[in-house]
Each structure stands twice: as C-alpha cells, then as structure tokens.
Lab assay of single mutants.
Amino acid sequence: DPDTRIPVINLEDGTRLVGEDAPKNKDLVEWLKLHPTYTVDM
C-alpha cells in the first residue's frame, strides 16, 4: 500500500520514526535520499 508508513531508524543516534512520524511507502525512496543517516528499521 503506497500510504503504509515504513518505520525508519537513524544509524547515528538510534532515533526511530514510527507511525505518523514515519515516511509513507510511496515517499520512502525520496525521503531516504533527503535523510541519509536513516535506514529502514526491520
């Protein structure tokens, strides 16, 4: 689902973004380019 929010984690300080704070699936690739310290939180 393009509107599903994907949890991400900041590799530098461990900050996790989940729920309403997390980027949407459809925006994920662009969002990660803009926030290079974050990666998808598995």
Results as ranks from 00 to 15, higher is better:
residue 1 D to R: 00
residue 1 D to I: 11
residue 2 P to K: 15
residue 2 P to R: 15
residue 2 P to W: 13
residue 2 P to Y: 04
residue 2 P to D: 07
residue 3 D to E: 14
residue 3 D to M: 12
residue 3 D to H: 14
residue 3 D to S: 10
residue 4 T to A: 08
residue 5 R to C: 07
residue 5 R to M: 08
residue 5 R to I: 05
residue 5 R to W: 00
residue 5 R to P: 13
residue 5 R to V: 06
residue 6 I to G: 13
residue 6 I to S: 09
residue 6 I to F: 07
residue 6 I to Y: 01
residue 7 P to R: 14
residue 7 P to S: 13
residue 7 P to F: 00
residue 7 P to G: 15
residue 8 V to H: 02
residue 8 V to W: 01
residue 8 V to P: 03
residue 8 V to F: 00
residue 9 I to E: 11
residue 9 I to D: 06
residue 10 N to P: 02
residue 10 N to H: 07
residue 10 N to W: 03
residue 10 N to I: 00
residue 10 N to Y: 00
residue 11 L to M: 15
residue 11 L to T: 15
residue 11 L to R: 11
residue 13 D to H: 00
residue 13 D to A: 09
residue 13 D to K: 08
residue 13 D to N: 14
residue 14 G to N: 15
residue 14 G to E: 13
residue 14 G to D: 10
residue 15 T to S: 14
residue 16 R to H: 14
residue 16 R to N: 10
residue 16 R to L: 12
residue 16 R to D: 07
residue 17 L to V: 09
residue 18 V to I: 15
residue 18 V to F: 10
residue 18 V to W: 10
residue 19 G to M: 04
residue 19 G to T: 01
residue 19 G to C: 04
residue 19 G to R: 02
residue 20 E to D: 12
residue 20 E to T: 13
residue 20 E to R: 09
residue 20 E to N: 09
residue 20 E to S: 10
residue 21 D to L: 10
residue 21 D to W: 04
residue 21 D to C: 12
residue 21 D to I: 03
residue 21 D to E: 09
residue 22 A to S: 06
residue 22 A to T: 03
residue 22 A to M: 01
residue 23 P to H: 01
residue 23 P to N: 00
residue 23 P to D: 01
residue 23 P to M: 01
residue 23 P to I: 03
residue 24 K to L: 11
residue 24 K to N: 06
residue 24 K to Q: 08
residue 24 K to C: 11
residue 25 N to V: 03
residue 25 N to W: 05
residue 25 N to C: 07
residue 25 N to I: 06
residue 25 N to T: 10
residue 26 K to D: 08
residue 26 K to S: 11
residue 26 K to G: 09
residue 26 K to M: 07
residue 26 K to N: 07
residue 26 K to Y: 04
residue 27 D to Q: 08
residue 27 D to M: 01
residue 27 D to Y: 05
residue 27 D to G: 05
residue 28 L to T: 06
residue 28 L to W: 00
residue 28 L to G: 05
residue 29 V to G: 12
residue 29 V to H: 14
residue 29 V to R: 15
residue 29 V to W: 05
residue 30 E to D: 13
residue 30 E to Y: 05
residue 30 E to A: 14
residue 30 E to C: 08
residue 30 E to G: 10
residue 30 E to Q: 09
residue 30 E to I: 02
residue 31 W to C: 07
residue 31 W to M: 09
residue 31 W to G: 10
residue 31 W to S: 05
residue 32 L to M: 10
residue 32 L to A: 03
residue 32 L to Q: 14
residue 32 L to G: 09
residue 32 L to I: 04
residue 32 L to R: 06
residue 33 K to D: 13
residue 33 K to N: 11
residue 33 K to E: 12
residue 34 L to F: 06
residue 34 L to C: 13
residue 34 L to V: 12
residue 34 L to K: 13
residue 34 L to M: 13
residue 34 L to H: 12
residue 35 H to M: 04
residue 35 H to K: 03
residue 35 H to G: 01
residue 35 H to L: 00
residue 35 H to R: 04
residue 36 P to G: 03
residue 36 P to A: 02
residue 36 P to S: 04
residue 37 T to N: 12
residue 37 T to I: 08
residue 37 T to P: 07
residue 37 T to Y: 06
residue 38 Y to R: 04
residue 38 Y to L: 02
residue 38 Y to H: 09
residue 38 Y to Q: 08
residue 38 Y to E: 05
residue 38 Y to G: 06
residue 38 Y to W: 14
residue 39 T to Q: 13
residue 39 T to H: 09
residue 39 T to P: 01
residue 40 V to F: 02
residue 40 V to T: 12
residue 40 V to D: 07
residue 41 D to F: 00
residue 41 D to T: 02
residue 41 D to R: 00
residue 41 D to M: 03
residue 41 D to S: 04
residue 41 D to Y: 02
residue 41 D to V: 01
residue 41 D to I: 00
residue 42 M to K: 03
residue 42 M to L: 09
residue 42 M to Y: 13
residue 42 M to C: 14
residue 42 M to R: 11
residue 42 M to P: 02
residue 42 M to D: 03
residue 42 M to T: 15
residue 42 M to H: 12
residue 42 M to N: 13
